[in-house]
Write a protein that binds this DNA or RNA. Structure first.
Lengths: 223, 223
DNA sequence: GTAAAGAATGACTACGAGTCAGTAAATAAA
DNA sequence: TTTATTTACTGACTCGTAGTCATTCTTTAC
């Protein structure tokens, strides 16, 4: 008897529909300005129903964000499992992140909005764990690529691969965040192009962690 | 007749008293959880009175944060106007920022909480400008130091000094933020000491922007 | 055809930011 | 000293919104 299964599916589907509505409203208004009433109206459901599927507004916000995380993760995973040189993979990871920023700016903002612990007072333990797991998956991909890099002798072996990952990732994130918020300001006040700044800093960091062998690979890619 | 002046002073004093109360509550609870009623009670004033001195809760939050900014700025200014080598000044700036993080963690968090534009919907134009001016002062100090570095030939002259400032500052900020929120996690899951990571990345970046002359200065300092 | 289970509803509660008519205190004018 | 005026303060109130829950509607089981 497939009734239970069908109901399961329908429930899942409804949950996604609600998330679609939530995403629309959150993208337009942001967490603070968006209201559950508006999300309910957009989903063509009553407010009470939303709470049958999500524990709180913040939980919903995180659920939307997780979609964004997964999209980025899939891209990283694709790069990781490709047959490229390690140096190329590292560069591709950076490119993917930068592209993600431009194509999915709203997701990017959400991810970094939620970086801040002051926000999640209302998040359920479940959702928090879900987020943690997803973040961990991401770091595992990065770790595995960098570990190969060290094993292959293209990355300096006096660093822990994850440590390098944190450095590269943090640097890039911080500058993308600035590009998002302060790009104009820097252009007007100091005549700085932050996109250029990001390129420079990524290049500096990458160069400084490569071995001679790695640098040779890098040079060969540029041809 | 000094009555007007005395009243002026008293008003300023009351404003500071309110800010003391606000700081206490914000430090304990954060922006979202703190309530105006609690701040009023702490200040031993009615809620209405708070609004005679500050336009909104967010404005008050920013006013507290500005205290923190000024404290950091004073330290930077002190270093900038000292008689040290440029390389030493740059290192001292980093040290000062790191110390600030440990000594004034609550201020640090506020500053970076407000980095996020999603928050200030309720901030008055006045306060926003005040913040901008203060931030600009900070960047002017950094710029002036780095500009000297280039003129003196200790920093590679193919970079814009402000650009270097943004890179160093962003890198450091991003890692301090991680130390604040994720230190344990990185230790437990990956056996990474983020404080060490910060040292490494700062060193890598610093080295990669120095000229040979600059590196010599750096080496002489280490002795 | 009817009982039971499941899904959805929307009026309601709780709570907090911000307001404003009214009160009290300080100063100026008479 | 008394009265008028300005200034400082108050707290009950409005308004908006997250989250709840008794009730209604729909689907499934027998």
């Amino acid at each position: 008897m497939g009734i239970v299964e069908r109901k399961e599916r329908e429930k899942e589907h409804r949950k996604e529909e609600i998330l679609d509505a939530a995403q629309k409203v959150f993208f337009e208004k942001g967490l603070a300005v968006a209201t559950m009433d508006e999300i309910a109206e957009t989903a063509e459901l009553s407010k009470g129903t939303l709470y049958l599927y999500y524990k709180s507004k913040e939980d919903m916000y995180l659920a939307v964000m997780m979609r964004g995380m997964e999209e980025l993760y899939d891209e990283f995973e694709r790069i990781s499992s490709s047959e490229l040189l390690t140096v190329e993979k590292i560069i591709k990871l950076g490119d993917a992140y930068r592209e993600y920023f431009y194509k999915h700016r709203k997701y990017f903002r959400m991810i970094h909005f939620l970086q801040n612990p002051q926000i999640h007072k209302q998040v359920s333990e479940e959702m928090r764990q879900h987020c943690d797991r997803e973040a961990q998956k991401m770091w595992n991909v990065i770790q595995s690529i960098l570990k190969h890099g060290i094993d292959d002798g293209v990355l300096r072996n006096n660093f822990n691969p994850i440590e390098l990952g944190v450095i590269l990732w943090s640097n890039m994130t911080a500058l993308l965040f600035r590009i998002d918020n302060e790009n104009m300001m820097w252009k007007e006040r100091f005549n700085i192009d932050l996109e250029h700044t990001l390129e420079i800093s990524s290049a500096l960091l990458l160069e400084s962690i490569l071995t001679d062998h790695g640098r040779a690979d890098l040079a060969s890619l540029k041809r």
